[in-house]
Design a protein around this nucleic acid. Structure first.
Lengths: 190, 190
DNA sequence: TCATTAACATTACATATGTAATGTAACATA
DNA sequence: TATGTTACATTACATATGTAATGTTAATGA
């Protein structure tokens, strides 16, 4: 007896992502989605209790994409790959990046997860295995701060000419500086 | 014959700053200001053509405060002081920091000015005078990226326990790492 | 074929905001 | 003291947004 659905949940989320990408998270509204779908605002409320709920779902999707980016094999160094993916994500998905890290979505949980991921990656780099826990922690923190600063610069358009290989070089050079320092301080302690 | 003014331009800007500090730049509206002043929205339009114009004036004020912060003598190193002031500003004036660097105010002009300032400061550090222009430039960029990353972390609340002295230490340590690397690479070239 | 019902459209109400139009009262001067 | 000017208040209109209430229609089972 029921009528056949025209729109589904995924379509609504996809339209939302398109709006966020083009106009920013702040512009995401039920009416914008309706315009995008060429429909009324009703379908949105068919699948989501509120705009708040939809926005959470959209945020989740951008996070999925971020995780995709930071797990790609840009180089042979998985530790570096995370940072490179992060910066390239900032370049290619400005508005998603802003939504995740610079809006009021309390990104600290997300950053925690990223750091945890980095913590496992860093162990895979052979030359760093000899470092103590606190030494590795310090190195991690420095690398993360630099990566984040770099990415925000890319995001805000201050760092231009940012081809993949240039991003890789910039981050890898900075990483080597931190690593060399960490190894040096490790040797000195002994 | 005219009536005595009750509110002046400065009061309106001050109220605006209070609102931005407490509720964020997005919440700044004529009616909010009126609430703050216990008045109507009319006085705002007495001194400003539009809210847009007022917002520009408010942004200018936050920039003035930022310049104040980055010119304070936290340490004897003027180069370091800029970064420290920047991070402390992010800690003490979250919403101003967001408005300036993370909102859509096209901060690149501001960053340019900051970099120019840093460029003059760096020359005052004796041990760095020997570096070539491009070497100094590279060092500057690295320092700036790190400082910005650090400040955004402070802003987003990820870096906690951020007393002045801890911020100074963190940035000075990172600075030393970059400086040592720059000097080392300079020596190698010879 | 037709009644039912889910999916969507339409309309409407509430709130927030910018800002123009209009009203009002205080104050300096004549 | 009367008056004109101006600073502010009030009111109103336009737009944007969330979302509830209500209307409409397409698909299916009887």
């Amino acid at each position: 007896m029921p009528r056949k659905p025209i729109f589904n949940k995924d379509e609504i989320i996809e339209s939302s992502l398109k709006i966020v990408k083009e106009k920013g998270f702040k512009q995401l509204s039920a009416r914008e989605i309706a315009r995008e779908l060429i429909s009324s605002t009703r379908p949105v409320y068919e699948y989501f209790q509120s705009m708040e709920e939809l926005k959470m779902a959209v945020l989740e999707k951008t996070l999925d994409l971020l995780y995709d980016y930071i797990t790609r094999p840009y180089t042979r160094n998985p530790f570096l790959n995370t940072g490179v993916g992060y910066a390239i994500f900032a370049r290619d998905h400005r508005e998603y990046f802003r939504t995740i890290f610079l809006e009021d979505n309390d990104a600290s949980g997300i950053i925690d997860e990223l750091l945890k991921k980095l913590d496992t990656e860093i162990l895979k780099v052979p030359e760093l295995a000899k470092l103590s826990h606190s030494e590795r922690d310090e190195l991690l923190k420095r690398g993360w701060i630099y990566t984040h600063g770099f990415s925000v610069m890319v995001f805000s358009g201050y760092i231009k000419n940012n081809q993949d290989d240039q991003i890789i070089r910039a981050l890898s050079e900075a990483g080597e500086i931190f690593i060399e320092d960490a190894l040096q301080k490790h040797e000195k302690k002994k």
